[in-house]
């Protein structure tokens, strides 16, 4: 309710936004998209930028494009789906294409916050803010997404793990860079299971899973968790236990290994769930996510 004083720029284009970021490079500029992370930070004094760059009106940053359907457009690579940074959660849920080709994103978005937030919040904003309990970072890791950004030095592509600091490092996004789109390779499977925090609505624990299945055998698995650490994280022990196993046998034993790679002492803790409890919940939610992924495949 009482944000500090700031200058406000409404960017007319990506170039305009980058130009403002460059000109105000010493003023701690922040990008405003859906506002669901930034505005609470402003109101609570956790952020006090001198300049806000509102990218909400930029054409072309919103929408879902399927590479499969656009034969002439080689930019998207074979079969990849491009999701504009300003695409809202509601847009994601309305996309039949995503539900078929990246169901893990659809499944995570289904349980993301509430209707009002889904109408306003953006995919790019979610991954950039990467709140510790946000749902999409886990889904992006499981989906093997890449994040496309533009900055003063032009365009570049960042792997989701690097972008989200999934190994505990800082996010790879530069200060004067802007996320333009998120690309995901096609996968017919994918599921997300979430224990919602009773106060914040974020994930106390959320697990996303994508399986590649080759005639009853798991050829590849990507499983990631959110809510447990300060950043989303791949559950490699689960992945290792799945690959090469038969689909109908592997899930339960693999899911039991979900907590193996995380020390409860490193896990987030509050009055509703200690680190120990969050790590304990991982197995249950990993199993649920894997089962949901299988349902999609069936």
């Amino acid at each position: 309710m009482f944000p500090p004083h700031f200058d406000y720029h409404r960017a007319s284009s990506i170039d305009d936004a980058l130009d403002v970021l460059e000109r105000h490079r010493d003023d701690d500029p922040r990008i405003l998209a859906g506002g669901h992370s930034l505005l609470p930070d402003l109101k609570n004094g956790r952020a006090s930028p001198d300049v806000l760059v509102d990218i909400g009106e930029i054409d072309g940053l919103r929408g879902i494009e399927s590479g499969v359907d656009v034969e002439s457009d080689t930019d998207h690579g074979t079969g990849q789906t491009a999701i504009g940074a300003l695409t809202t959660y509601a847009d994601v849920l309305e996309s039949d294409h995503l539900e078929r080709h990246a169901p893990v994103l659809t499944d995570a978005t289904r349980v993301l916050a509430d209707l009002q937030i889904r109408n306003r919040g953006t995919v790019g904003g979610n991954l950039t803010a990467a709140e510790p309990g946000a749902d999409l970072p886990a889904a992006a890791l499981a989906a093997d997404a890449t994040i496309h950004v533009r900055g003063p030095d032009g365009e570049r592509t960042i792997d989701a793990g690097e972008f989200l600091g999934a190994d505990g490092s800082e996010s790879a996004l530069g200060e004067r860079e802007l996320v333009t789109e998120i690309r995901v390779p096609p996968s017919p499977t994918g599921g997300y299971a979430k224990k919602t925090h009773p106060a914040s609505g974020y994930a106390m624990v959320g697990v996303a899973a994508v399986l590649e299945i080759d005639t009853e055998t798991i050829a590849d698995a990507r499983v990631a968790a959110t809510g447990v650490l300060e950043h989303a994280v791949r559950l490699t022990a689960v992945e290792d236990a799945l690959v090469g196993e038969r689909v109908d046998e592997a899930i339960e034993t693999a899911a039991e290994r979900a907590g193996e790679t995380i020390d409860p002492a490193d896990a987030r803790s509050d009055d509703h769930a200690s680190g120990e409890f969050r790590v304990h919940l991982l197995s249950t939610y990993a199993a649920q996510a894997l089962e949901r992924a299988m349902e999609v495949d069936a």
């Binding site: 609570n44 925090h197 106060a199 914040s200 009055d271 509703h272």
Partner: peptide, 20 residues
């Protein structure tokens, strides 16, 4: 549950942490 730490700092100081 309103929760304080030992120094008297209210930990559940908003609807983000106090679960109505």
């Amino acid at each position: 549950r309103a929760s304080y730490d030992g120094d008297g700092t209210l930990l559940t100081n908003s609807l983000d942490s106090y679960a109505v």
